[in-house]
Each structure stands twice: as C-alpha cells, then as structure tokens.
Design a protein around this nucleic acid. Sequence first.
RNA 1: GAUCCGGUAGCUCAGCUGGUAGAGCAACUGCCUUUUAAGCCGUGGGUCGUGGGUUCGAGCCCCACCCGGAUCACCA
Length: 501
Amino acid sequence: MKPTDITENQQSSNENKTEETIRLEKLTKLKNQTKHPFKYTFSKTHKTTDIHENFNTLETGESNETTVTLAGRLMAKRNHGKAFFGNLQDEFGIIQLYANSNKLGEETFNDILSYDVGDIIGIVGNPFKTKRGELTIKVTNIELLTKSLLPLPEKYHGLQNIELRYRHRYIDLISNPHIKETFKIRSKSISFIRNYLEKKEFMEVETPVLHNIYGGANAKPFNTFHNELEQNLYLRIALELHLKRLIVGGFEKVFEIGRVFRNEGISYKHNPEYTLLELYEAYTDYHDMMNLTEELLSALVFNIHNSYKIVYKDTEIDFTPPFKRIKLVEEIQNKCNIDCNNINELRNKAKELNLNVSNEATKGHLIMELYDSLIEPTLIQPTFIIDHPWETSPLAKKHRENDNLVERFELIINGMEIANAFSELNDPEDQFDRFQDQLKAKEKGMEDSQVMDLDYIQALKQGLPPTGGLGIGIDRIVMLLTNSHSIRDVLLFPHMRDKNE
RNA sequence: GAUCCGGUAGCUCAGCUGGUAGAGCAACUGCCUUUUAAGCCGUGGGUCGUGGGUUCGAGCCCCACCCGGAUCACCA
C-alpha cells in the first residue's frame, strides 16, 4: 500500500477511525516528512534504574548538569499546554520525563506532543527533581525510534484478562512490568543450576528431541513424520535413555536441561511441553541423588530468596536441609492399616476410596493409586517419598534389601512431584523383562506403558556402571520460587487452544 | 471428561424484574509552562463470544457450540 492511500481521508473528524488508523496516518506523515519512524540504533548511557540510583539524592527543585541518554517506551503523557510530562519505561523501570516549549523549540516540542503512548523513543536530557520531589529527566532532545500502531491496555489496571495475557504475552510484559520478575527468577534459577552442576564437574549435553522410539517415562507422545525418510517420529517424553547411553560411553557425570513433550491433559501443573533437568552420575545410587537434590534445591532457594524459607499460597515452605524422608509402602500401611503384600486388601481399600482401578492392576499399581490419592496431596513441606513398588518403575533397580521394591524416590513439595530419581537399572536381562512387562501392560490397555528399546538393551549389555539418575521439573520449581499458582504463569508462552479470530 | 464461574467500546468494569447500550481510562477538538491514575470544555467509538429458540420486544430467559478460569477426574 502506498502511504498516500492512508492519508487521503485525513480530516479533523475522528468518526469511525480506530486508534490504529489515526496512528497509521501519523506514521505516513512522518514517512512523507522523511522522518524515519523505524530507526536503526540508539546509544544510551543510562538505564532508568541508573538514574534513580545515581541522582536520587538531588534536592527538590535541584538540577544536575550531567547529560544522560535513555531509551524506552513512552507509557504515559501529561500535556500542560507549553509543558509536557511523560513516563519512559525500559526493561528495568520507569522514569519521568519533562519538556517545555521554550527550552526545546517549538518543532521538537510539537513532535513530542504527536508521540503516542506505546511509542519507543530515545531521549537526551539531564536529571532534576520536580516541585513534588519526583526525579525526572528534563528533555533537551528526543527522537522517535519506533512508532507503535496499537494502543496499550489501560494505564492503571494494566492487562487483567488472563486469556489475553497468555495469548499476547508481549502486551502483558509491557503493561504489567512486574511479571518480568517471574521470568527473571526463572532465568536466574536455570543459570544457577547450570553453574552448580558445572562446578561439580557435570557436563552439559544435548540429546535428540526427535525420537524413533519414545521412552524414559510413562506418557503419551506427540507423533510427527519425516517426509524424506518416510519415517514416523516422536517428540521426546524424557531425556533418560540417551543420557544413560552417554554414561555407558564413558562420560561419568552428564546433565541436560531440555524441553520434553507429553500428549496429555493440561492443568495448573501440566503443560504439553515443559522443561526437565535430568542428570546422571556414574558410581552413585539414589541415596547420593537424594543428597544432591537436597543440596541443589536448598542452595537454589537460598540463592533466589536469601533464605531457605519461602511462602507459597500463604504457607511457609522450608527448604532447610535435610528434607523429610518417608518410606512409601510403610506410609500406606500405617495410613490404611492394611497389609500391602495382600492384593485383596489393597484392592478393597482402593474400592472403598472410589478409586477406579483396572482389573489388571498389580499390587504395585494399587499401592501407587493409594499413594496418589492419600499421601501425595498431603505432603506440603519438601519430602522424599522413597522405595516404590517395582511394577511402576521399569527403569529403576530392584531394592538391595527387598525384591518387591526399587531404589527410587520422588520429592514432593506442596503436593506436587518436583523430582524423581533412582538407582538406575543396569542389568540388561532384568531391563529386558521389565520392557516385556510394559508391553504386556500396553496390550491390556495401559496406554502409557513404555515400549521396548532394543538399542538401549544393547547399551546395557555393553555395560552401564552403577549409576544414580535424577529428574527435576524446572517449571514446578519456578512456580514455588515465584509463588505462581499455575504453570502457565512461569511459561512465557503457555500452550493455548487455537482460537479463530 | 464433569461441575461451577466468566466472555459487554482498544483496556478495566457496570448493566436491576426482559422495555432504545453505560462509566472510567485510552482516542479525537479546544484550554492549560512542575504534573504524576494531572485537570477542565466538547466529540466519536458496540456483531453485548458464536449460532439457534422463546417473546410484541433478549446483553438479560432456554438450547447447542467456541474460548478462558476454578474445582474435581485423567496423567498406573
């Protein structure tokens, strides 16, 4: 479209003109005046926060002669005839701007008046404090860096509509700058974890996202297809099996922080794609993993909050190590007063609680059902729940003292599973049998059962040293650290159902 | 998947027992040289989520559907 097309109807009337149309007309005018409305660079000397830090000591009415340049988004305009006040927002904060016609000259002053809330501008000026004591930049020069064509949400309430906040996160970030804090904490947490593990000589690796065979967890995968190879592929549901292949290969400490994809329900704690930390360390077992988890998470919490205690939903959660450790089966026995070796007692208890259990459910499945409904939701403070039934843990090694159990733990906080770890099963024959059991379960309709991975079996035959493995849900940890009550609040772009607009 | 709540101007929200669709902010005219949710005068702006139905008449009542939220279920 030629710019003139837009200006043709330019009249003083605003009938039926949307705000976008009005701004487009301004844009065209600028282009016609060869005032380029989309600049290439701007060099700034200060952030808004620098101004507050460096010049806050000014007396009311006092000026400082230092010339400063800043850039950001114009968030509010207050015109007073020949004077102008505005708010400039950058990534870090807000600073007030002041300009007057005398000092700036009429042309530049009129330029300022023509700017819209939302425009990106660069300014030159010097700091002073107004009569009312607000630190402000007296503008000596100003230029438009990017014209914004769409209005922003209401200045006082910001964008409140949850759906719009998720669908248009960029508006949310502009309009509700405090939510940036959540994502800064997320970034800082991941960075902390990475540094922490590197200090312990873990090596960060990257393994494939596209899998021929999905594995490492009980979950439904997303399917995709490689056109050239004419091959069905899956998006990974876990990092596990490839990382353990690397331990076979001789790396002794590896980790990956990666996105995994699970084709399942969405809830306040489930998003179809989420970020998982998995690490594996040769010559260790799940006890070592428990110590590592405790140490890592408490250090992380302390790093972010300068305390081991955080508040989540009005409840104080205390990450001071050591965390509580509870044996899963013992806990069920105590709580239900039943014999966990007796499948009938388990089944009756499950029925009594109206849990829908299939006829194929084993003792292990029943125990886990009871655990999920009776125990997990009650664990608010960080708690290791340990030694799971073997049937529901096909990649974990049998417990050294009890054949019915595996050496596994989950870390539960606020009723959410945060971490999952085990002494990795490294007996290829046992692993093969477990995969067979999974296949049988799948045939019986347990959709999420794992599939046979013969290459992984081959890797185990080559020899996997005794290894401890750990997975931590990054999103859920960030939920706790930021007091976010939905996983969508810690994802910049949470998955939303398609909406025809 | 079930139940409940919500979807009205760009944004935040009112809208009673069914009777011509409202406010604030934002926008547009004008005034205003230290305001700050600036102020004052005036103006424009609506497919009331979508589609049916009931009714003389529907934002409001009924049905179906779409999107979101909460709770529950699912996620062995």
